[in-house]
Design a protein around this nucleic acid. Structure first.
Lengths: 217, 217
DNA sequence: ATATATTTTTAGTCTTGTCTAAATATTAAT
DNA sequence: ATTAATATTTAGACAAGACTAAAAATATAT
């Protein structure tokens, strides 16, 4: 059985390792988790002892198969709870992250399976991120950042890379939501801004915004 | 802000003090919480330091107004989550206690208010126990144990005192559920058993069962 | 290739919440 | 009213998870 703290480290390593099991540095984890590097070293050793991580001193950590499955189980819980909060309790998507950070550590497989059914077995959470099934499998919608889309092309907004409160509030304010059809009209090299068109309006977005919006073509 | 452990102690003291602020003994808490008496003494001191409890050495503890409010807030969360699990996720009432023990410590006032609304602001949980509102107020349905009901009288099963898995499973097996009308037919002094009648059948119950069934007349 | 900077690890400390064993109070019994 | 039994508290220890400061390893730059 994993502790709350262990689960947070597993999640961090999973995300930083880009899901494919790349080795991750101590400092990167420390930053992600907002802890000191020395604390990270301590915890990594514990994870390695429990065979959840592969660790070679000074060489970084990666997850074992079991560690990866555990990480995905936590992510599954996080995303299902976020979906619950938005779909059933009418939270706005920028409010749910902190609460889901707590809920993701509740231990009961039956609970999460029933929640999954209650929500209609969703495949993606309110930010467009894929929800792993109970075996850890998921399919990511093929999409690319507006940064990589040539003017003239359009697609459907399927996910946002940045899930920070500030960014989600920006999207709300500008009435951009998942599922919207967005057409890339123009790219301005001077400030690297884009002009995009939605059903309701035409607007200009900064490079910073563009790189966080993912469209499926 | 209270820790998970503190919240469990507050709940225990609240329940043992019969809600009216009676002083509770160290040993009683130790048994309730399944800890050693020395651990209880330590924690009591912390609660007193935080002004959540009144403590005089060797004389037991009682809750302060703030302690009582905190305890009721935790109980509110516990009972709302139990209601959610039974009503929305289709859990059986004997399965929900352990999960609610975890969920009751999730910190977000907004979450619990929205959950309350989502459930239709229920006044009682699946065991018939009252759910405090956000100010800590609740009304307990006036009811008495079958032990105290004279044969010939009837009432509606409004709550069960024992919420253990074993007892709830017994009730399920015998098709006794909250809301059922129950008539007390006979009392047998020899083994202190009762004969009761429900819509569907007549059955005999032991003293042990009778004392845990509460009817409103 | 060596010096410097950066990253990582180690050693030792702290807090929270628990425990055991021993000491002290309180309660019950003769 | 003592003594015996029970309840409670204190003292000291431990595990988890975090921290600081110092040491060691690795990476970078000249």
């Amino acid at each position: 059985m994993t502790t709350l703290s262990e689960e947070n480290y597993l999640k961090a390593i999973y995300h930083l390792g880009k899901q494919d099991g790349e080795a991750v540095s101590t400092n990167a984890i420390a930053e992600q988790i907002d802890a000191k590097a020395s604390s990270v070293t301590d915890m990594i050793k514990k994870l390695a002892d429990k065979e959840l991580a592969n660790y070679i001193k000074y060489q970084g950590v990666s997850l074992t198969e079991e560690g990866r499955l555990t990480a995905k189980a936590v992510i599954r819980k996080h995303r299902l709870w976020e979906t619950f909060l938005v779909e059933k309790l009418n939270f706005s998507w920028h409010e749910v992250h902190e609460i889901a950070e707590q809920l993701e550590h509740i231990k009961s497989e039956k609970l999460i399976d029933k929640l999954d059914d209650f929500l209609g077995n969703p495949t993606h959470d309110p930010h467009g991120d894929p929800i792993p099934d109970k075996y850890g499998n998921y399919t990511k919608i093929k999409s690319k950042s507006i940064l990589d889309i040539k003017p003239g092309n359009q697609g459907i907004l399927t996910s946002v890379k940045d899930s920070s409160k500030a960014f989600l509030k920006y999207l709300n304010k500008n009435k951009l939501a998942l599922g919207d059809t967005i057409k890339v009209i123009d790219f301005e090299p001077f400030d690297e801004s884009f002009t995009i068109e939605t059903k309701s309006k035409t607007m200009t977005i900064s490079k910073n915004v563009a790189e966080n919006l993912y469209l499926s073509i």
